[in-house]
Amino acid sequence: MSTSTPLLEVDRVTAGYGAVQALTEVSLHVMPGEIVTLIGANGAGKSTLLMTICGDPRPRSGRIRLAGQDITALPTHAIMRHGLAQAPEGRRIFPRMTVRENLLMGAEALTSGDPTPQLEQVFALFPRLKERLSQRGGTLSGGEQQMLAIGRALMSKPRLLLLDEPSLGLAPLVVKQIFGAIRRLNAETGLTVLLVEQNANLALRLAHRGYVLVTGRIAMEGSGRALLARPEIRDAYLGGGVAA
């Protein structure tokens, strides 16, 4: 496969829930090995876009391609078999499964063979999880749940990791740890990441490229640094340049 084929290509996608249209003609792409971030205010449609990529809801129009292959019409579980994994909004940890069971569920339907190498990878990334192995998911702290959500997503050995607001509600130190882990994953294993964030400052510093979503439409795009330097971005998302 040539390197010019995007790993993910969202092509003029319109989608929403019920009578609400959350996304209008959204187009973006993610190249292999990139970290791309999608920033925007609350309710701009960021989470809807990640879920639409996973087939829930289905796009009303437009196409979605993974490594050139059209996945638009597939049901969610079949889309996920194309090397996609998501740590979704709200983390969605299985509350009555242990940390270990949660992790194994990540590999259960999407891989065959021994999941131990992935487990080791997750423990190397988040040693905290190893200490909590037999604890129930519902009893973890917010930060640990986020680590578990990312760890569970990594268990299926994805090519593309979709992350929905991993910083939400977490202490700055934990956020730093999690963003450090994402950077490491990308640098060491070449994992491609599409990161949705409200914390534009952090996200744009981490990402190679970024898109700005405003009420369901892509308003701007560019490299992380270029977007950080734009005055509109500073005013709208970075509190006028003063660190939030």
Partner: peptide
């Protein structure tokens, strides 16, 4: 919903 996201 999460089960579906894990390929079930």
């Amino acid at each position: 919903k999460m089960a579906a996201l894990l390929g079930i």
